[in-house]
Amino acid sequence: MRALGTIAVILTGALLLYASGDFPAWGEPYSPANDSRVSRHYILKSFEETSVPNMVTAVLADYRSYDTLFETVVIFTAGIAIISILRGPVDKRVRLRRASEKSLRQSNLILAQTCRLLVPVIQMFALYVIAHGHHSPGGGFQGGVIFGASLILVALSFQLQTALDRISEKRAMILAGIGVLIYSGIGLTCVLLGSNFLDYSVLSKVLPLSAIEARSYGILGVETGVAFTVTAIMFAIYANLSSHGRMKGGL
Protein backbone atom coordinates (compact mmCIF):
# COMPACT_ATOMS: atom_id res chain seq x y z
CA MET A 1 0.00 0.00 0.00
CA ARG A 2 2.88 2.30 0.88
CA ALA A 3 4.71 1.65 -2.39
CA LEU A 4 1.50 2.01 -4.37
CA GLY A 5 0.73 5.27 -2.59
CA THR A 6 4.21 6.62 -3.27
CA ILE A 7 3.94 5.84 -6.97
CA ALA A 8 0.49 7.43 -7.23
CA VAL A 9 1.58 10.54 -5.34
CA ILE A 10 4.78 10.99 -7.37
CA LEU A 11 2.92 10.56 -10.66
CA THR A 12 0.14 13.00 -9.73
CA GLY A 13 2.62 15.47 -8.26
CA ALA A 14 4.85 15.37 -11.35
CA LEU A 15 1.84 15.92 -13.59
CA LEU A 16 0.67 18.90 -11.52
CA LEU A 17 4.18 20.40 -11.37
CA TYR A 18 4.44 20.05 -15.15
CA ALA A 19 1.07 21.79 -15.53
CA SER A 20 2.02 24.62 -13.15
CA GLY A 21 4.34 26.01 -15.84
CA ASP A 22 1.29 27.01 -17.86
CA PHE A 23 -0.41 28.86 -15.03
CA PRO A 24 -0.50 32.65 -15.11
CA ALA A 25 2.14 34.22 -12.87
CA TRP A 26 1.14 34.36 -9.21
CA GLY A 27 -0.68 37.61 -8.40
CA GLU A 28 -1.20 38.59 -12.04
CA PRO A 29 -4.07 41.15 -12.09
CA TYR A 30 -5.06 40.35 -15.68
CA SER A 31 -5.09 36.57 -15.49
CA PRO A 32 -8.17 34.90 -17.03
CA ALA A 33 -9.76 34.27 -13.62
CA ASN A 34 -9.25 37.82 -12.38
CA ASP A 35 -10.18 39.57 -15.59
CA SER A 36 -13.39 37.65 -16.23
CA ARG A 37 -16.63 39.51 -16.75
CA VAL A 38 -18.25 37.93 -13.72
CA SER A 39 -15.62 39.06 -11.19
CA ARG A 40 -15.47 42.47 -12.81
CA HIS A 41 -19.23 42.81 -12.42
CA TYR A 42 -19.10 41.75 -8.77
CA ILE A 43 -16.37 44.27 -7.94
CA LEU A 44 -17.76 47.21 -9.87
CA LYS A 45 -21.50 46.77 -9.56
CA SER A 46 -22.22 44.89 -6.31
CA PHE A 47 -22.43 48.04 -4.20
CA GLU A 48 -24.72 49.80 -6.65
CA GLU A 49 -27.00 46.79 -6.88
CA THR A 50 -27.12 45.63 -3.26
CA SER A 51 -25.75 48.52 -1.14
CA VAL A 52 -23.41 46.11 0.64
CA PRO A 53 -19.77 47.30 0.77
CA ASN A 54 -18.39 43.82 1.51
CA MET A 55 -18.39 42.17 -1.91
CA VAL A 56 -17.88 38.69 -0.46
CA THR A 57 -21.10 38.94 1.59
CA ALA A 58 -22.99 40.37 -1.37
CA VAL A 59 -21.89 37.57 -3.69
CA LEU A 60 -22.34 34.88 -1.02
CA ALA A 61 -25.88 35.70 0.01
CA ASP A 62 -27.30 37.47 -3.03
CA TYR A 63 -25.76 36.56 -6.39
CA ARG A 64 -24.87 33.02 -5.36
CA SER A 65 -27.54 32.43 -2.75
CA TYR A 66 -28.67 29.07 -4.19
CA ASP A 67 -25.17 27.81 -3.51
CA THR A 68 -25.24 29.05 0.07
CA LEU A 69 -28.74 27.65 0.66
CA PHE A 70 -27.59 24.17 -0.25
CA GLU A 71 -24.33 24.52 1.70
CA THR A 72 -26.52 25.21 4.72
CA VAL A 73 -28.54 22.10 3.91
CA VAL A 74 -25.27 20.12 3.65
CA ILE A 75 -24.31 21.23 7.17
CA PHE A 76 -27.78 20.34 8.46
CA THR A 77 -27.52 16.92 6.83
CA ALA A 78 -24.07 16.37 8.35
CA GLY A 79 -25.53 17.03 11.79
CA ILE A 80 -28.31 14.50 11.21
CA ALA A 81 -25.77 12.00 9.85
CA ILE A 82 -23.54 12.28 12.93
CA ILE A 83 -26.49 11.83 15.28
CA SER A 84 -27.76 8.79 13.39
CA ILE A 85 -24.28 7.23 13.25
CA LEU A 86 -23.51 7.64 16.94
CA ARG A 87 -26.95 7.38 18.54
CA GLY A 88 -27.00 4.62 21.14
CA PRO A 89 -29.27 3.93 24.10
CA VAL A 90 -29.80 7.18 26.01
CA ASP A 91 -29.87 6.98 29.80
CA LYS A 92 -33.19 8.59 30.75
CA ARG A 93 -32.30 9.31 34.38
CA VAL A 94 -29.20 11.29 33.44
CA ARG A 95 -31.14 13.29 30.91
CA LEU A 96 -33.86 14.23 33.35
CA ARG A 97 -31.62 15.29 36.20
CA ARG A 98 -30.66 18.93 36.02
CA ALA A 99 -27.03 18.79 37.01
CA SER A 100 -26.13 22.37 36.25
CA GLU A 101 -25.90 23.87 39.74
CA LYS A 102 -24.00 20.91 41.06
CA SER A 103 -21.53 20.89 38.23
CA LEU A 104 -21.04 24.64 38.54
CA ARG A 105 -19.86 24.11 42.09
CA GLN A 106 -17.74 21.08 41.23
CA SER A 107 -15.76 22.80 38.55
CA ASN A 108 -12.44 24.57 39.10
CA LEU A 109 -13.05 28.06 40.55
CA ILE A 110 -10.76 30.03 38.22
CA LEU A 111 -11.97 28.13 35.16
CA ALA A 112 -15.61 28.58 36.13
CA GLN A 113 -15.36 32.33 36.77
CA THR A 114 -13.30 32.98 33.62
CA CYS A 115 -15.82 31.04 31.59
CA ARG A 116 -18.71 32.99 33.13
CA LEU A 117 -17.02 36.25 32.20
CA LEU A 118 -15.99 35.18 28.72
CA VAL A 119 -19.11 33.47 27.40
CA PRO A 120 -21.35 36.57 27.24
CA VAL A 121 -18.57 38.54 25.54
CA ILE A 122 -18.03 35.79 22.98
CA GLN A 123 -21.76 35.60 22.27
CA MET A 124 -22.02 39.38 21.87
CA PHE A 125 -19.09 39.26 19.46
CA ALA A 126 -20.78 36.47 17.52
CA LEU A 127 -23.95 38.54 17.15
CA TYR A 128 -21.85 41.52 16.07
CA VAL A 129 -20.10 39.41 13.44
CA ILE A 130 -23.44 38.19 12.06
CA ALA A 131 -25.03 41.64 11.98
CA HIS A 132 -21.96 43.53 10.76
CA GLY A 133 -21.07 41.13 7.95
CA HIS A 134 -22.19 43.74 5.42
CA HIS A 135 -19.44 46.19 6.32
CA SER A 136 -16.61 44.05 7.64
CA PRO A 137 -15.40 40.47 7.31
CA GLY A 138 -17.94 38.16 8.83
CA GLY A 139 -21.40 36.81 8.28
CA GLY A 140 -23.59 33.90 9.15
CA PHE A 141 -20.99 31.13 8.90
CA GLN A 142 -18.35 32.84 11.02
CA GLY A 143 -20.78 34.23 13.60
CA GLY A 144 -22.52 30.88 13.84
CA VAL A 145 -19.27 29.04 14.47
CA ILE A 146 -18.25 31.59 17.13
CA PHE A 147 -21.62 31.28 18.86
CA GLY A 148 -21.33 27.49 18.72
CA ALA A 149 -17.80 27.78 20.17
CA SER A 150 -19.18 29.70 23.17
CA LEU A 151 -21.56 26.80 23.89
CA ILE A 152 -18.67 24.33 23.44
CA LEU A 153 -16.66 26.42 25.92
CA VAL A 154 -19.43 26.02 28.50
CA ALA A 155 -19.43 22.27 27.91
CA LEU A 156 -15.64 22.07 28.17
CA SER A 157 -15.16 24.15 31.29
CA PHE A 158 -18.11 22.69 33.25
CA GLN A 159 -19.69 19.47 32.03
CA LEU A 160 -21.53 18.52 28.90
CA GLN A 161 -24.72 18.38 30.94
CA THR A 162 -24.37 22.06 31.93
CA ALA A 163 -24.44 23.07 28.29
CA LEU A 164 -27.20 20.57 27.47
CA ASP A 165 -29.38 22.17 30.19
CA ARG A 166 -29.07 25.46 28.34
CA ILE A 167 -29.66 24.01 24.90
CA SER A 168 -30.61 20.35 24.66
CA GLU A 169 -29.84 18.27 21.61
CA LYS A 170 -33.49 18.26 20.58
CA ARG A 171 -33.66 22.03 20.85
CA ALA A 172 -30.41 22.35 18.90
CA MET A 173 -31.79 20.29 16.03
CA ILE A 174 -35.03 22.31 16.05
CA LEU A 175 -32.94 25.50 15.84
CA ALA A 176 -30.97 24.03 12.96
CA GLY A 177 -34.20 23.28 11.13
CA ILE A 178 -35.48 26.78 11.84
CA GLY A 179 -32.32 28.19 10.25
CA VAL A 180 -32.89 26.31 7.00
CA LEU A 181 -36.60 27.28 7.14
CA ILE A 182 -35.74 30.98 7.55
CA TYR A 183 -33.46 30.81 4.52
CA SER A 184 -35.84 28.94 2.24
CA GLY A 185 -38.80 30.89 3.68
CA ILE A 186 -37.29 34.17 2.52
CA GLY A 187 -36.79 32.57 -0.89
CA LEU A 188 -40.41 31.39 -0.99
CA THR A 189 -41.65 34.83 0.10
CA CYS A 190 -39.90 36.25 -2.94
CA VAL A 191 -41.69 33.69 -5.14
CA LEU A 192 -45.07 34.52 -3.56
CA LEU A 193 -44.46 38.22 -4.18
CA GLY A 194 -44.14 37.44 -7.84
CA SER A 195 -40.43 37.18 -8.54
CA ASN A 196 -37.70 34.55 -8.73
CA PHE A 197 -36.66 32.34 -5.81
CA LEU A 198 -34.29 34.35 -3.55
CA ASP A 199 -34.62 37.58 -5.55
CA TYR A 200 -34.77 39.89 -2.54
CA SER A 201 -35.45 43.13 -4.42
CA VAL A 202 -39.13 42.18 -4.58
CA LEU A 203 -39.31 42.41 -0.76
CA SER A 204 -39.64 46.18 -1.21
CA LYS A 205 -43.33 45.52 -1.98
CA VAL A 206 -44.01 44.57 1.65
CA LEU A 207 -41.24 46.43 3.48
CA PRO A 208 -40.84 50.22 3.57
CA LEU A 209 -37.57 50.04 1.64
CA SER A 210 -36.27 50.70 -1.82
CA ALA A 211 -35.45 47.72 -4.03
CA ILE A 212 -31.70 48.06 -3.39
CA GLU A 213 -32.10 48.33 0.38
CA ALA A 214 -34.42 45.34 0.29
CA ARG A 215 -31.59 43.26 -1.15
CA SER A 216 -29.34 44.35 1.71
CA TYR A 217 -31.95 43.36 4.31
CA GLY A 218 -32.67 40.11 2.49
CA ILE A 219 -28.97 39.28 2.84
CA LEU A 220 -29.19 39.99 6.59
CA GLY A 221 -32.19 37.66 6.82
CA VAL A 222 -30.53 34.71 5.13
CA GLU A 223 -27.31 35.24 7.11
CA THR A 224 -29.39 34.94 10.28
CA GLY A 225 -30.79 31.65 9.02
CA VAL A 226 -27.30 30.36 8.22
CA ALA A 227 -26.11 31.41 11.69
CA PHE A 228 -28.93 29.49 13.41
CA THR A 229 -28.09 26.30 11.54
CA VAL A 230 -24.32 26.54 11.95
CA THR A 231 -24.55 27.34 15.69
CA ALA A 232 -26.86 24.44 16.41
CA ILE A 233 -24.98 21.92 14.27
CA MET A 234 -21.56 22.85 15.68
CA PHE A 235 -22.85 22.29 19.19
CA ALA A 236 -24.67 19.08 18.24
CA ILE A 237 -21.53 17.67 16.56
CA TYR A 238 -19.44 18.45 19.65
CA ALA A 239 -22.01 17.00 22.04
CA ASN A 240 -22.21 13.77 20.07
CA LEU A 241 -18.49 13.35 19.41
CA SER A 242 -17.43 14.02 22.99
CA SER A 243 -19.94 11.62 24.56
CA HIS A 244 -20.17 8.77 21.98
CA GLY A 245 -23.70 9.96 21.26
CA ARG A 246 -24.85 9.08 24.80
CA MET A 247 -25.21 12.72 25.91
CA LYS A 248 -23.52 12.17 29.23
CA GLY A 249 -19.98 12.39 30.54
CA GLY A 250 -18.22 14.34 27.84
CA LEU A 251 -14.64 15.52 28.01
Partner: peptide
Protein backbone atom coordinates in the same frame (compact mmCIF):
# COMPACT_ATOMS: atom_id res chain seq x y z
CA UNK B 1 -11.42 46.20 -10.70
CA UNK B 2 -7.61 45.97 -10.41
CA UNK B 3 -7.66 47.59 -6.95
CA UNK B 4 -9.65 44.83 -5.24
CA UNK B 5 -8.89 41.15 -4.82
CA UNK B 6 -11.17 38.89 -6.82
CA UNK B 7 -14.11 38.08 -4.48
CA UNK B 8 -15.40 35.07 -6.42
CA UNK B 9 -12.82 32.45 -5.25
CA UNK B 10 -13.23 33.74 -1.69
CA UNK B 11 -16.97 33.10 -1.76
CA UNK B 12 -16.60 29.62 -3.22
CA UNK B 13 -13.94 28.63 -0.69
CA UNK B 14 -15.65 30.18 2.34
CA UNK B 15 -18.51 27.75 2.08
CA UNK B 16 -16.07 24.92 1.28
CA UNK B 17 -14.30 25.44 4.63
CA UNK B 18 -17.52 25.17 6.64
CA UNK B 19 -18.66 22.12 4.69
CA UNK B 20 -15.15 20.71 5.24
CA UNK B 21 -15.54 20.83 9.01
CA UNK B 22 -18.96 19.15 8.69
CA UNK B 23 -17.46 16.30 6.65
CA UNK B 24 -14.58 16.04 9.15
CA UNK B 25 -17.21 15.68 11.89
CA UNK B 26 -18.96 12.88 10.00
CA UNK B 27 -15.62 11.15 9.46
CA UNK B 28 -14.78 11.38 13.16
CA UNK B 29 -18.22 9.98 14.05
Amino acid sequence: AEDYANPLPHVLMLTAIVVGVATLGVGLA
